[in-house]
Write a protein that binds this DNA or RNA. Structure first.
Length: 810
RNA sequence: GCGCGGAUGGCGGAAUUGGUAGACGCGCGGGACUUAGGAUCCCGUGGGGCGACCCGUCCGAGUUCGAGUCUCGGUCCGCGCACCA
């Protein structure tokens, strides 16, 4: 008797992934299978995956898994009949690349080109994704950043890009300013150095003007909840009141504070000005200026709040309702940049104010019943009933807020107000490796935009591109680049020497992909109308608030300008899970990076893709291990064998047709929800059955074909090869080739109903699906096993659920 | 501290959203074929008990005919935010 293997090897060669994958890579490229016809597609589908930053190390498994998952979705849409555009590119500018280039002593452009080549040729082209390389973008190439500069100019012309002085985050290690979003717990996200506050003149994009729109727009988006929540929190809308206090003993007459707890106004026993307040000196009596400034200069940057740090400003404020005279303090625990930069401190009801008051022996007055401020306990921060609030005692917090605001309004001393945590986007970077901000500073005309026809402002070749640390970009040293004539008056002028933040590059790249073949516009109107918004965007939640929020902001601006057809760029967004190794994020510093190249070489892209998708739910991520890859090898060997041995022409076997239709439905439903692991489980189950039938000589060709089509998005190479070997028409990936299922056939026909007595399973009953409750009850009570258990007792209740269960209660 | 997830066999994970817990795979055990096999194929596999059965989804209560799924309280883990007044 022959073994299956013998049989197989007698009839066809063994599965050789190297040959199969090389063959189809070549054919697809020659035929241009994945070159997207961008003009006039019938059902365009823009399938986008976040593009990588090309590092020297190459893509690791933590990158590849999300990419494979995105491609599976795209391939499925294509099989369903859409014209799928799946582009890829490189986010090649930025501090990270520059730091690496410095480390190895090469020019960032050289390092970048080498990395991009490696990414594209050795990695991305091997994983079996259907990227359309005719539309690659590279943000560090002049033909791209020219348009990044153009985008900046559009914002500038609308007054949304402004240069202004302000307190900024300065990283003393990276020697540049950082956006708020690049600071984590007071530290630089890149090098973990504690950031300092500096006062510099910088370029900002006024995203805060769109705070409400960006918040409201979230509701209509089909995005992962986690991502939406993060954006919601980051925008951080709060409802409160602005209250004016008159001042005494300093240069200012009055100050406005922002609070969400207007109900606690009567508990305000002092004011606190943020230590980084831009007009701090106006709060200080002249005779105390020296002392306060000395104190302020001694402040050290800190990543943790210290509520005891503060100084008495020496001036006083008048309580707007009681007229009481209360002291003004200065402390770093109050943020100069949020609200008005000054708060009314209510120590009895706020944790921070409480600690500060305790540290400086300031007065504490309880204004919400419940707490005990005389004892040395914690503050009473919850809402409740007002006390010690002349004329408002007994009101609830909610009512108190309204009534107190109303009173303040009558007195012209306050009004309700909305504030956002979101701040303007600081885009200046005092570094080399980025697009120069296209502005010329003229002593006569001020900041003048570079004329659009003069773009790009090329990044000059520079031997020494190291950051200077002086708050000025190294570009400032290139005299013949910096010195230009003013586009308006022709007089001598100087170029802006800061470059823009990498996140500006990536905030519009999805608009460029469909239009890479246009040299005269950033994006072509018609192409954009056809392809935008992006239908499906997949990426990591690490970009939930930066990249995704910036992109939404720019899109809204472009929409207002009539440059794009819709205000939101990404209709559907799904955050993939994070792949860890030994429980930690894959990173060079942990030394736990898994290189996909060797796996692809050893097992092939098909096996690897399948295995990665089978690790766990795509959207939750998981821990990478290769312990089970053998199972996937076996599965594909089985597919290889059955596709070439299942030759029965039968298409009518009722049971097997139902099984086939059910499979199509399950896989189809699962892919739609990115449930790849369960889809693969069904395919395995089906393959096992068909393989066993094939070994008995009963395998059906129609089953094999269905299996190949359903498997095609996951394992594009082997399915294409087998499709050809079976002599089926065209490509297994041909648009529209996805099999249809008949919902009636996909429905299960016979079901097993569990019979339980008092909730414990005692027997089973196989019946036609849809058998009604009465029938189920009757059948269940007749079962010998059940009658025996009942011993003649009358059930007090019999619950029957169609197709599921009968529960007999005694 | 606040917000959002999560906890299921030896392991990764399923479970039609309140209806037979453990699909599928790894591992393990047994068998077939073989000179041999860490190759391939088949069967078995939550724990306990000879058995009818009993116990099992982080812990503790509750709702329900019925709870992995819902409610309340707690423990642990992951992610995000973190002086935002």
């Amino acid at each position: 008797m022959e073994t299956a293997t013998d049989t197989a090897s007698a009839r066809f060669d063994d599965y050789d992934h190297v040959r199969v994958e090389a063959k189809w890579r070549r054919i697809w490229e020659e035929r241009g299978d994945y070159r997207t016809p961008l003009d006039d597609p019938e059902h365009p589908f823009y399938n986008l995956m976040m593009f990588p930053y090309p590092s020297a190390e190459g893509l690791h498994v933590g990158h590849i898994i999300p990419y494979a998952g995105s491609d599976i979705y795209g391939r499925w849409r294509r099989l369903k009949g859409d014209t799928v555009f799946e582009p890829m590119g490189f986010d090649a500018f930025g501090i990270h690349s520059e730091n690496y280039a410095m480390k190895i002593g090469e020019h960032p452009a050289v390092v970048m080109r080498r990395a991009v080549h490696n990414f594209r040729e050795n990695q991305l082209k091997r994983i079996g994704s259907m990227f359309d390389w005719d539309h690659e973008v590279n943000t560090a190439e002049p033909n791209y950043y020219r348009w990044t500069q153009w985008v900046f100019l559009q914002l500038f012309k609308r007054g949304l890009a402004v240069q202004r002085e302000g307190a900024v985050n300065w990283c003393p290690s990276c020697l540049t300013v950082l956006a708020d979003e690049q600071v984590e717990q007071g530290k630089c996200e890149r090098c973990h150095t504690v950031v300092e506050t500096r006062y510099l003149r910088q370029w900002w994009l006024l995203i805060t003007r769109y705070a409400q729109q960006l918040l409201d727009g979230l509701d209509a988006l089909d995005w992962s909840d986690s991502t939406r929540t993060m954006q919601h929190n980051w925008i951080g809308r709060s409802q409160g009141a602005l209250i004016r206090f008159d001042l005494e003993g300093c240069a200012r007459d009055n100050v406005t504070v922002y609070t969400t707890r207007t109900d606690t106004l009567f508990g305000a026993t002092f004011l606190v000005v943020g230590a980084d307040h831009p007009e701090l000196e106006d709060f200080v009596p002249r005779e105390r200026l020296g002392e306060v400034n000395a104190w302020r200069n001694r402040l050290r940057p800190s990543d943790e709040p210290d509520f005891s740090v503060g100084i008495d400003a020496g001036s006083h404020a008048m309580h707007p309702l009681t007229g009481e005279r209360i002291p003004v303090w200065i402390a770093p625990y109050v943020l100069g940049g949020y609200g008005t930069g000054v708060i009314m401190a209510v120590p009895a009801n706020d944790e921070r104010d409480w600690q500060f008051a305790k540290a400086h022996s300031l007065r504490i007055v309880a204004v919400i019943s419940g707490g005990d401020v005389s004892a040395d306990e914690a503050p009473h921060t919850r809402e409740g009933t007002l006390i010690n609030s002349d004329g408002f005692d007994g009101l609830s917090s909610a009512e108190g807020k309204q009534r107190i605001i109303a009173r303040l309004q009558e007195l012209g001393r306050g009004e309700s107000s909305v504030q956002y945590k979101l701040r303007d986007w600081l885009i200046s970077r005092q570094r080399y490796w980025g697009p120069p901000i296209p502005i010329i500073h003229c002593p006569v005309d001020g900041a003048v935009p570079v004329p659009e026809e003069d773009l790009p402002v090329l990044l000059p070749e520079l031997e020494d591109f190291r950051p200077t640390g002086t708050g000025v970009s190294p570009l400032a040293t290139v005299e013949d680049w910096v010195n230009v004539s003013c586009p308006q008056c022709g007089g001598p002028a100087r170029r802006e020497t800061d470059v823009s933040d990498t996140f500006l590059d990536s905030a519009w790249y999805f608009l460029r992909y469909p239009s890479t073949d246009f040299d005269d516009v950033a994006w072509d109107e018609e192409r954009t109308a056809t392809w935008l918004p992006v239908d499906m965007y997949i990426g990591g939640n690490e970009h939930a608030v930066r990249h995704l929020l910036y992109s939404r902001f720019l899109m809204r601006v472009f929409h207002e300008m009539g440059l794009v057809p819709v205000p939101e760029p990404f209709t559907r967004f799904r955050a993939h899970g994070i792949i860890t190794r030994d429980g930690r994020k894959m990173s060079k510093t942990y030394g736990n990076v898994v290189n996909p190249d060797e796996y692809i070489e050893r097992y092939g892209a098909d096996t690897f893709r399948l295995y990665m998708m089978y690790l766990g739910p795509y959207m939750s991520g998981g821990d990478f291990r290769d312990a089970g890859i053998a199972g996937m090898v076996r599965f594909l060997h089985r597919v290889w064998r059955l596709a070439q041995t299942a030759t029965s022409r039968d298409t009518h076997d009722a049971a097997r047709e139902r099984r086939r239709h059910r499979l199509i439905k399950r896989v189809d439903d699962d892919i739609a929800e990115l449930g790849y692991n369960t889809a693969i489980a069904f395919l395995m189950e089906f393959a096992r059955d068909v393989d066993q039938e094939a070994q008995r000589g009963e395998g059906r060709r129609v089953d094999a074909e269905t299996l190949l089509l359903l498997l095609a998005p996951f394992a594009p190479f082997i399915t294409e090869e087998l499709w050809q070997r079976m002599g089926s028409d065209g490509s297994v990936h041909a648009p529209g080739g996805w099999p249809q299922y008949d919902p009636d056939l996909a429905r299960v026909q016979r079901v097993t109903v569990a019979i339980t007595v008092n909730g414990k399973v005692r027997d089973q009953l196989e019946v036609d699906a849809g058998t009604d409750q009465d029938q189920l009850r009757r059948l269940a009570l007749q079962l010998p096993r059940i009658r025996e258990l009942l011993e003649g007792r009358e059930p007090s209740k019999v619950v029957a659920v169609v197709d599921r269960i009968v529960n007999i209660v005694v």
